[in-house]
């Protein structure tokens, strides 16, 4: 019986940890803009040709 109590307390701790992370995500504004980041990651960083070769 002890094992169930132990497992439940571990799983609940992990779940609460995720809830806390979610709260932090929302509060720090990570879900404020759902569109721009999806586009931004597809922009290529153009190679700078003018840079002297070191």
């Amino acid at each position: 019986m002890m094992i169930i109590i132990l497992l439940i307390s571990i799983s609940l701790t992990i779940a609460v940890a995720f809830l806390v992370v979610f709260f932090w995500n929302i509060k720090s504004g990570q879900y404020d803009d759902m569109y721009t980041p999806s586009v931004r990651m597809l922009f290529d960083q153009k190679k700078d040709d003018n840079k002297p070769v070191s």
């Binding site: 404020d32 803009d33 759902m34 569109y35 721009t36 586009v39 931004r40 922009f43």
Partner: peptide, 20 residues
Amino acid sequence: LENLQKVDAGILRSEVNFAR
């Protein structure tokens, strides 16, 4: 608008919020 720093060296960073 996220490459504004190329236009003027005084601009450090720019970030767009498309929804707003």
